[in-house]
C-alpha cells in the first residue's frame, strides 16, 4: 500500500514537474499573437490584393477560352453535320435523277424500237397490199387478153371449120356468149379446171 502511494506521489511529482517545465507550451504570449496578426495581415493584404485576383482572372480567362473553344467546336461540328446532310441529300437527289434518266432513256429506246417495229410492219403490209393489187390487176388484164385472144382464135378456127366467114357481128356475139359461159377465172387459180373447158371448146 505504501509502495503504491509512493509510486502515486512520484507520478504526481513528475506530472507537476512536467507541467512546470512544459507550461510555456500552453501559455499564450501576447507579443507572439501580435506578430501573428502582423504576419497574417501582410499575407492577407498581398494575397487578396494581388495574388488571388490575378489567379482568379487567369482562371476565368482560361475557363472563358475553354467555353468559347467548346462553343466554336460545337458550332463547327453542327455546321459540318449540316453540310454533310446537305451533301447526302444532294447525292441522293443526283442518284435519283440518274436513275430517272436511265429509266427514261430505256423507255424511250423501247418506245422507239416499238415504233420502228410497227412502222416496218405497216410498211411491209402496205407493200404486200399494193403487190397483191398489182398482181390482181395484172391477172385481170392477162385474162382479158386471153379472152380476146381466144375469141379471135375461135373465130379463125370456126371460119376454117365452116369455110365461111361468119357474119362478123352475129358470130362475135355468139362467141362472146359462149365464152362468157366458160369460166376463165379458173385459169388464174387452177389450170386443170380451165384447161379442159378451153380445150373442150376449141
Amino acid at each position: 500500500m505504501s509502495a503504491l502511494s509512493e509510486t502515486g506521489t512520484t507520478l504526481l511529482l513528475a506530472a507537476a514537474k512536467k507541467d512546470e517545465g512544459g507550461s510555456f507550451l500552453v501559455t499564450p504570449g501576447l507579443g507572439l499573437m501580435l506578430w501573428t496578426l502582423i504576419a497574417f495581415g501582410v499575407t492577407y493584404y498581398v494575397l487578396s490584393k494581388v495574388a488571388f485576383p490575378k489567379i482568379a482572372e487567369a482562371l476565368d480567362k482560361r475557363r472563358k477560352a475553354i467555353d468559347e473553344s467548346i462553343d466554336s467546336a460545337l458550332k463547327t461540328k453542327a455546321e459540318a453535320d449540316q453540310l454533310l446532310e446537305e451533301y447526302r441529300a444532294r447525292l441522293k437527289e443526283a442518284r435519283e435523277q440518274a436513275d430517272d434518266i436511265v429509266a427514261r432513256s430505256r423507255k424511250a429506246a423501247e418506245a422507239h424500237q416499238d415504233e420502228a417495229k410497227s412502222s416496218a410492219k405497216q410498211y411491209r403490209e402496205e407493200l404486200m397490199q399494193s403487190t397483191r393489187k398489182d398482181i390482181e390487176n395484172e391477172t385481170r388484164r392477162a385474162l382479158e387478153e386471153i379472152r380476146k385472144e381466144v375469141a379471135g382464135l375461135t373465130l379463125i378456127a370456126t371460119e376454117k371449120v365452116t369455110r365461111k366467114s361468119l357474119d362478123d357481128e352475129d358470130h362475135r356475139r355468139l362467141i362472146e356468149e359462149a365464152l362468157s359461159e366458160v369460166d376463165f377465172s379458173a385459169l388464174a387459180g387452177d389450170k386443170k379446171n380451165g384447161a379442159p373447158n378451153g380445150s373442150g371448146d376449141s
Binding site: L25, V26, T27, P28, G29, L30, L32, M33, L34, T36, L37, F40
Partner: peptide
C-alpha cells in the same frame, strides 16, 4: 505554439 493558432 498556442499563441499563433489562438490569434488566428
Amino acid at each position: 505554439n498556442l499563441s499563433i493558432p489562438l490569434m488566428l
